[in-house]
Write a protein that binds this DNA or RNA. Structure first.
Ligand code: SF4
Ligand code: SF4
Lengths: 148, 148
DNA sequence: TAAAAATCAGATATTTATGTCTGATAAAAC
DNA sequence: GTTTTATCAGACATAAATATCTGATTTTTA
């Protein structure tokens, strides 16, 4: 069954990673971010607004306003962003959707899929934004050296 | 990025697994299958028709018509069904979609996601319908003992 | 205090995925 | 040969995901 994550979530991750390398600078406007990650600014704004309501991002209105990360980088895991945008339902759902499943008579995919699904979950939970900051910086810099 | 497989594909897998345990019996009509796997028969029909065009399923018109598996069970892998319905694009795509990626400067997820993606692909490629037939029979029987 | 530049909330629009219908054709049973 | 029952092809309908717009509010700058 279905998704690792949606496009919305992909965007959210990109935006947050982008913000994470600039956390100590000023707030970044939706349009500024949208130039960097090449996505419609209205959509970015919308997504970031929802991350604000989840406490991951903080926003500031007005002329010098924009968005920034709301917590220390070591307190935000990738899975937190996925959870905020897509929810965690996927990580509890089965692959095939046959009815009447029970542990004694799983379908051929139950165990194997379950393992992969858990590994994916763990991968996203393992590291905080701080842990991957170096790699993220490299990446963001390679997109536009002016970013850092 | 995105999907392991779509609902269409989930349904296709269910339908093919159902057919696989009854391969040596007569053709099964879309409505018969839809009763078992609880999905609209028109949708089932549509999906099976596309599997017909991919050579995985064979159909027969007319009064005793319906669908059946077209090849020996050891020649059909789960990935073949996924490929027919959803395509394999997902297994070649990146997670985050940042631009300008190269092997030297991958983003934090590139390697880890790549591994999981490959494992998923391998899992679906590993076994043929024949290999999992026993487990499939158990599962189908548990849904409705009359099925086998 | 007025102008500029940003978020915010919610409505609206577009696109894609999912699901349904209709009429034509084919095969079996009578 | 006629009736029944199935697939088939393609149009159509609905739902969900993605994307855009609009007007209000907030804050800074001048
Ligand atoms: S056995 Fe597991 S994977 Fe298979 S249909 Fe049931 S819950 Fe889903
Ligand atoms: S480094 Fe890899 S995972 Fe990251 S954005 Fe590029 S291709 Fe995708």
């Amino acid at each position: 069954m279905t998704v690792i994550f949606s496009k919305k979530c992909e965007l959210a991750l990109q935006a947050v990673l982008y913000l994470s390398v600039n956390k100590d600078k000023n707030f970044f406007s939706a349009s500024g971010i949208s130039e960097q990650i090449k996505m419609p600014k209205e959509f970015i704004a919308k997504i970031l607004q929802s991350l604000v309501s989840h406490g991951i991002v903080v926003s500031k209105k007005g002329k010098t306003g924009g968005f920034n990360i709301n917590k220390p980088l070591n307190e935000i895991r990738l899975i937190d962003i996925v959870a905020a945008v897509d929810g965690l339902e996927i990580f509890h759902k089965c692959v095939l959707g046959f009815e009447g499943c029970n542990v004694e008579q799983p379908c051929p995919l139950h165990n194997k899929w379950g393992k992969l699904r858990d590994m994916t979950y763990n991968m996203l939970s393992e590291e905080t934004l701080l842990d991957i900051l170096d790699k993220t910086e490299e990446k963001i810099k390679s997109i536009n050296p002016a970013n850092i």
